[in-house]
Design a protein around this nucleic acid. Structure first.
Lengths: 215, 215
DNA sequence: CAACTACCTTTACGGTGTAAAGTGCGTTAT
DNA sequence: ATAACGCACTTTACACCGTAAAGGTAGTTG
């Protein structure tokens, strides 16, 4: 059976997950697929295009809550949570989503449903753009930070923070460190969502009537 | 005059700014400094350590507002704004800050002053950790997104969004695109800061007395 | 004058992305 | 039936990469 774009992209994602982003090379990926490196160029014009396909694969993994399954605010929050969940399942690959530009059809489709949620909340295009970026940038930044906190990057200077925290000369950093351990990152993320979604609920035109009731 | 760590790091940053992160190689950097590639290894044990030095260089560029110059809330906001300003001055290099782990003494010192600001606002360590991450992750995500919006990445698929927006099949994406142009990113970022700092002011124990007055 | 050190060069190895050309096989056209 | 074609892949090659190892050379110290 011949190779396929999807099969190659999946193998690339698996390789990245297992051995890190910088370990993905056309030769190593070819070897994993039982094929020479150049065979991949029959399916992707360049490694960059292959990486784009990997990004699409990641996006496809984020399940979008059905429109009638929950209230717009809950849909959005569920989506953001799942987005971060995907980041935690694919730490080394997630960097691609944050660092690379992203303009495929599938990415636009993804944005479209998110923007639809903001429309359901009563925002016009300008407001939607701003809230989209606020929440999206927080989600993206959180994913990157959480990934970086978990991952051991091969060529980085070793991390002393969680190994010998008492040696840190900065008292406030030392005091905060226990609240930024890997185990507490979920709660830290949820706190951020709480703040953002409280403000969002307060601002959403579609929730005007319900505002007093909820507090 | 011999090379120095600082001189090499500055040249590396300049090279990255001019030609992109992936154009930084030890040979090219050496050539720019009039020296063979291996000479750099006399000053840095590896390329990874050199990149760490570049990151410190970036951090050093973010001027920290003096403690008595403004109110704690304004100090923090000024710092976040300057952080993003640094990102916009060094688009290709900023990715390092978001993607690489970061544990040098200088980074800790940077965190320390930020955490001091949260302490000045009356937060305990746990609350400080959460607000630090919320605002920090937003800043980091915004920097990445704004950088990606401006930059042309060599090997990425070409961007159609701002070139022929009328061809986009997704109506909400099309409607939102004009509000996410490069010119409007400053305003979008400020909007995010408005939301976050309103919530922060509301939550800060040290601002308890002033709360009603400000609104 | 000898030894040492700091700084840089030379050479080499195993890796990278990918351009260009070649191979073999299944389908289609005459 | 045979010739042509095109798809999927391989082979070879080139210019690059990070860096290990060893070599040089000038300046300081004993």
């Amino acid at each position: 059976m011949p190779l396929s774009r999807q099969g190659i992209a999946l193998a690339a994602l698996a390789l990245i997950d297992e051995e890190g982003l910088e370990s993905l090379s056309m030769r190593r990926l070819g070897a994993r697929l039982g094929v020479e490196a150049m065979a991949l160029y029959h399916h992707f014009p360049s490694k960059g295009d292959l990486l784009d396909a990997v990004m699409e694969q990641l996006l496809d993994e984020v399940e979008i809550p059905a429109r009638d399954a929950m209230a717009p605010l809950d849909r959005l929050r569920a989506l953001v949570t799942r987005y971060r969940g995907m980041a935690l399942r694919h730490p080394p690959a997630f960097i691609l989503l944050a660092a690379r530009r992203f303009n495929t059809e599938r990415a636009f489709a993804f944005y479209e449903v998110i923007l639809e949620m903001f429309a359901d909340l009563g925002f016009d295009a300008k407001q939607a753009a701003r809230w989209f970026r606020l929440i999206g940038n927080f989600a993206s930044g959180s994913g990157m930070a959480d990934v970086a906190s978990r991952e051991r990057i091969a060529d980085a200077t070793p991390l002393r923070l969680e190994h010998d925290p008492e040696q840190i000369a900065f008292p406030r950093v030392r005091a905060v460190a226990p609240h930024l351990t890997v185990q507490s990152l979920d709660a830290v993320f949820e706190f951020g969502l709480d703040v953002l979604f409280a403000a969002l609920a307060e601002a959403a035109p579609a929730l005007k009537g319900l505002r007093r009731r909820s507090r």
